[in-house]
Write a protein that binds this DNA or RNA. Sequence first.
RNA 1: GGCCGGGUGGCAGAGUGGCCAUGCUGCGGACUGCAAAUCCGCCUACGUCGGUUCGAUUCCGGCCCCGGCCUCCA
Length: 461
Amino acid sequence: MPLMLHNTLSRRKEVFKPLSPSHVGLYVCGPTVYDRAHIGNARPVIVFDVLYRLLRTLYPSVTYVRNITDVDDKINRRASESGESIETITTRTTRLFHDDIAALNVLPPDLEPRATAHIDAMIAMIEQLLTKGHAYAAEGHVLFSVPSMADYGRLSGRSMEEMIAGARVEVAPYKKNPADFVLWKPSTPDLPGWESPWGRGRPGWHIECSAMSTKYLGASFDIHGGGQDLVFPHHENEIAQSCCATGAPFAHTWVHNGHLMVEGEKMSKSLGNVLSVRDLLEQAPGEAIRLYMLSTHYHQPFDWTAEGLRQARSILDRLYTALRNVADLPVRAGVRIPIEIRAALEDDLNTPLALAHLHELTADLNRAETEGDKIWAKSSLLAAGESLGLLRLDPEAWFRWHPAGAEANALSEDAIDAAIAARRAAREAKDFAAADSIRKDLADKGVLLEDGPRGTTWKRA
RNA sequence: GGCCGGGUGGCAGAGUGGCCAUGCUGCGGACUGCAAAUCCGCCUACGUCGGUUCGAUUCCGGCCCCGGCCUCCA
């Protein structure tokens, strides 16, 4: 089964063919580091992490580039509001971003270039565009001339007329055409700026991704990803900048994830329903957030609900229960990703179907009778989990998770063990009333007991 | 208004021209001192109206409804 991906350029699912059989280049638009990551930011990070994991099993070499946007007017505004320096904000926010997504089992990309470290590459690309007549300088700005590119609008399926008609912002007087967009703009002394042929200034919104993807992956590369809202204008403009500057085709396959809603409503600051990854990590383990995110196909809109997250945790309880029951058995080395999981992922990252197969593997493990079958089933389940970035924890660690900040209220593990011992004594004495009372008492404190063939185990509710 | 994507059982969510998604929940059975977990089984589906077809949730068309984007946005 070849890898199939939905390509926004063609609007259909295509067989993925890398430019080189031995190497795949993947570029995904990363965060603008002005605030903590919210759950909508996490979606592409998780989706493309699954794609990255899959590509690494299919090709000898993969280069995954995800940028950090650390020059942006939102950052500038944040700095002037808080009085902190821009660097303080971007450094701290970048660290928080890394911490948050690591908790979601997201692998680091191979390269994570920062925009401010690549200003020279951006200036060079802008100069190329000027030389080739695709850009013009005006009043300290440099603008991309949209009419200079014949098939501008191909990715988003827009005509020039539509874009001009749809332009809602006031058209700046120095624009030759309302659709032209900024490549470089002047900075006042209080704003970050770099010396350029057009005076001290800073890059426009789109040029950094063009410059950095070209630098690290070449003028043409395989896959460019991001959220659906970036199709226009960001990705459309990236294509325009890169193709016109280099004269080569840009990314061949464009993959976009759908948007995220919260409890049926658009997530927005005005509605006050923006969920930060950090807040969610205090409500549920990172793997529950990740599994929940993967339970809807990446191309579909996702409606994030508290109930859905609770369900995701229940599902993982089941998976980890199966693994806990075979905790003392070894994992066979070199077991491949089960074929049905791989087939689901190769079919345009059908993670909901892959998760359905994960449940079947779990049932297989629960039903296995011989030790050999159990080892095989356990190894297969873990290999499948790895491909999705799930089941990376020790089962006991999973069941001991409790919300952050609840340490003070949480019963200590020593106290739990003592209660279990007392209950065992009561049961041996056939004093079931006392045993049930202990169990009830623990349950009231959020600790659930289960009597199994291997003794009594517990988990936090 | 323009462009795009959807409408599946109590909920979430895949998929397919004729047979099972899967999970959560609920119900019954096995197991258990009782539970829980697990296993076995069960229930409730494909917006609407037409068309094509031996047969459509699946293909085609109309209609209704929902969502996203249209230079802040993952």
